[in-house]
Design a protein around this nucleic acid. Structure first.
Lengths: 358, 358
DNA sequence: TTGTACGCGTTATCAC
DNA sequence: GTGATAACGCGTACAA
């Protein structure tokens, strides 16, 4: 494999200096027509491809934005959390769409679209959240988007001192980061009010483990709503991963067996709600007649489920786009006056709460 | 904004040389415990983030793979081609899934997954296909995946001389590239045989404009099958974009008006087939009773359509993964003995051809 | 208009 | 175990 040709090779072949070669690409008008042509021919013949590394080093920026996510699913598939994702048989024509696209995927798509429109390159990376992996990508980009996960906070703050960082759905804890979130609390509140007022439900349970700030906020909204409606507030959510030794969803199975299910199950996420729907179907519990089920996120799989899933839709694409805008805006002045955005959500009424189809 | 700290700053603060700093991160065991600790502390305090540009320059490779796609849709949305994608209102909870995820998105996802599993960073980029934009990303990565589009062939061959390039669904024309394709011809052939043998259809039309190699191959398979079944072969496909001045699908509208629709419409892609379904529904033509409709690709939207769409499923995720494997395999020896892969497809029988649901 | 020379931040090869 | 020092490829003042 021949060594990659450089400006030097092109310059030599074209019989000019490297500066002229560089000018030919960067400031064509500064170079005489004939010279330019000669350089271009030489470059073409040699198969010259400018090194972005060298340019980035000289110019001081890489020209790319980064998006980092946590690869928990890859590391420990089919385990823990509420990710009921089936095996990665993505090419089965009947593959469960609940594996893709998910919340993360739709936010990522918004991020991509905005980058494309701005002609920005986008570097995707994922890892365990270790300082090393985050630092690695941080060294490659001019700005970084970050999904929630088991982040090493110190590393984040360190990175945020050098390049702008936008965190999705994280607590304001990490200082110096920009934030993009949605109104989790208000969304669930509105959802619960709908269940109570329009469907006459007076006995509700919240399903989910409060592992992320988002989930905690949703439970808070749940409690808010019940309290203001004068209904009893469960002290704790139903944790489907509890009692792991007895299998996932043991808590719910018990309630089913004892016929003590509440009239409505408000789930912390769509993925969780879909798993709950499966569980209930397996036990012949009619939804929404015996129990209403709701989710949160608005992923596509919720529309494919039977019954279709009532949920709270996050403006995922908008979140991704906004993040890019923030990064670009702060490209020159990182971490100076961090921005914080809380986007509105929207209750989507479908069959699983008792609303009519379509 | 303070200058980004470098190895020099860290070295000075830790009272060591830059080599020691570098070793601390790259070959920790070569550095004494106490020294290492001091360096790490200094790095932490300064907020040191190693520059990937500098590393790439010194080390000779960037450590990232690239995936390039054409932004035709972005450039001229709702125009030309058969992309019936609705406005980019992706955050409408009832947004048409036929906008996402599409063929490209699923291949990309496979590409992503494989990169993640290998700890490879992934650089996404899109552009008009101009030499400049392709060259730009080529300079940033160690290998490049490429979607079909109005490529500048010379640029491609030039790039492929320096880094391995995998082209999806392209003709073997560009020399020196690796190729990943599917059995378009065989897939449509099998599909047509199903329509004829199992549904007794004897009058078929092919809908699509042969703008891409894929589409041309599919039409060839269509013709193959009809010929070998002893049925008349249409000389040309029905081009829905023909007679542009009379609006899209004028050809089909005419056939509907004259009640001369064939018994089956084999469409070049799912997106196209979905648009055809809409058109037929608007004219109250019953599918599949009056006319069977089939697609190609196997995108998710086909499962959401009513009737559900019979199609030929491409192993999109597998294509993406395979591309990464090829790139990694040839990272050290670009363009030496290009690989060519043709993956099998699978006919998926659903309602739109007359097969029973589910 | 074109050429020379230096800096960008890292890695790697030497000596010490 | 640690410290100088030379690449790496490009951008760009500055000189010619």
């Amino acid at each position: 494999m021949p060594r990659r040709p450089t400006v030097y090779d092109v310059a030599e072949r074209a019989g000019v200096s490297i500066a002229t070669v560089s000018f030919t690409f960067r400031q064509p008008e500064r170079v005489r027509e004939s010279t330019r042509a000669a350089v271009l021919v030489a470059a073409q013949e040699l198969g010259y491809v400018p090194s972005a590394s060298a340019r980035g080093l000289a110019h001081g920026r890489t020209g790319a934005l980064g998006l980092y996510s946590f690869d928990l699913l890859l590391a420990a598939p089919q385990q823990g959390s509420d990710a009921a994702a089936p095996a990665d048989d993505a090419d089965d024509p009947d593959a469960d769409p609940r594996a893709f696209p998910l919340y993360v995927d739709e936010v990522q798509r918004g991020f991509e679209l905005e980058c494309w429109q701005r002609g920005q390159a986008l570097l995707l990376s994922s890892g365990s959240g270790s300082g090393a992996s985050v630092t690695d990508i941080a060294g490659r980009v001019d700005g970084l988007g970050l999904f929630p996960g088991p982040t090493h906070v110190e590393t984040l703050e360190q990175v945020a001192r050098r390049i702008p960082v936008v965190a999705f759905s994280m607590r304001p804890e990490p200082r110096g980061l920009h934030h993009v979130t949605v109104d989790n609390r208000g969304g669930v509140r509105e959802l619960v009010e709908h269940l109570v007022r329009d469907h006459g439900v007076r006995d509700l349970g919240f399903v989910g483990r409060l592992t992320t700030p988002d989930y905690a906020d949703r439970f808070a909204g749940f409690a808010d709503a019940l309290a203001s409606l004068g209904l009893p507030v469960p002290a704790e959510p139903l944790d489907p991963t509890d009692l792991a030794e007895r299998g996932r969803f043991a808590v719910l199975t018990d309630l089913v067996a004892a016929d003590r299910l509440p009239r409505a199950l408000v789930c912390a996420s769509d993925q969780l709600a879909l798993a709950v729907l499966d569980l209930l179907a397996a036990h012949d519990v009619p939804v929404p007649d015996r129990v209403a089920v709701t989710g949160f996120d608005g992923i596509l799989a919720g529309r494919l489920a039977r019954p279709t899933l009532t949920t709270v839709r996050q403006p995922m694409a908008a979140m991704g786009r906004l993040a890019v805008q923030v990064l670009v805006r702060h490209a020159h002045a990182p971490a100076e006056e961090p921005e914080s955005h809380r986007l509105p959500v929207r209750v989507v009424r479908r069959e699983s709460c008792g609303c009519p189809a379509g």
